[in-house]
């Protein structure tokens, strides 16, 4: 059973506030890049190298990992940093909450009811669309420089102009597509 929106919204708002008071605004999507970088660096150690010239102390032949003085390269080299541990803890927190409420029902683990009502019960079809969607979402989030957490929630709470631009782009694409794809209620 989920929280009524008044209680849930208050709790979520207090978590976003606590993050700003104690450390910095919440963000998630950067950590996909850091994890990719860790994997890539494990295969090819030349991807992140120590560099005295770089502001962060680390450099990369990849322009994205190398940007802002090698800030991402530094986090790839040292995964035990705030942002990366934050996302791991987020996953653990969600798992704990799900465990305490009895877990996700088996029938829903492959797809939500609204998907089944519109596209049938084939798990492979659902996984394929989820995979392609994941690609679009993270490519989009990195192009935008943030995601629903960093741009929309953290951004709009700080009255950031970029947060409003992001929210406009997101909902102008998401609502029409959802209306077209999911004609039947789940």
């Amino acid at each position: 059973m989920i929280l009524p929106w008044r209680l849930g919204g208050l709790a979520l708002g207090l978590v976003f506030l606590a993050a700003v008071v104690l450390v910095k605004p919440i963000g998630v999507s950067t950590q996909f890049v850091i994890f990719d970088g860790i994997l890539w660096d494990a295969v090819n150690p030349a991807v992140v190298v120590e560099s005295l010239d770089a502001k962060s102390g680390y450099a990369s032949p990849n322009a994205y990992l190398d940007k802002s003085g090698g800030a991402y390269a530094k986090h790839v080299a040292n995964p035990l940093n705030y942002g990366f541990v934050f996302v791991l803890a987020m996953m653990a927190g969600a798992a704990l909450s799900a465990l305490l409420r009895g877990g996700v029902p088996k029938a829903e683990r492959a797809m939500p009811p609204v998907w089944r009502a519109n596209f049938g019960a084939s798990p492979m079809k659902r996984y394929l669309v989820a995979f392609v969607s994941g690609f679009l979402v993270l490519y989009g989030a990195r192009l935008a420089g943030g995601c629903t957490s960093g741009h929309m929630m953290s951004g709009m709470m700080q009255t950031a102009v970029s947060g409003y631009i992001f929210a406009a782009g997101t909902f102008l694409a998401a609502i029409p597509l959802a209306l077209i794809m999911f004609r039947r209620e789940g």
Binding site: V132, T170, A173, A174
Partner: peptide, 12 residues
């Protein structure tokens, strides 16, 4: 980027 994200957000 927000629009690209929105497409995947809706589909998934």
């Amino acid at each position: 980027g927000g629009a690209l994200l929105g497409l995947g957000f809706a589909a998934a």
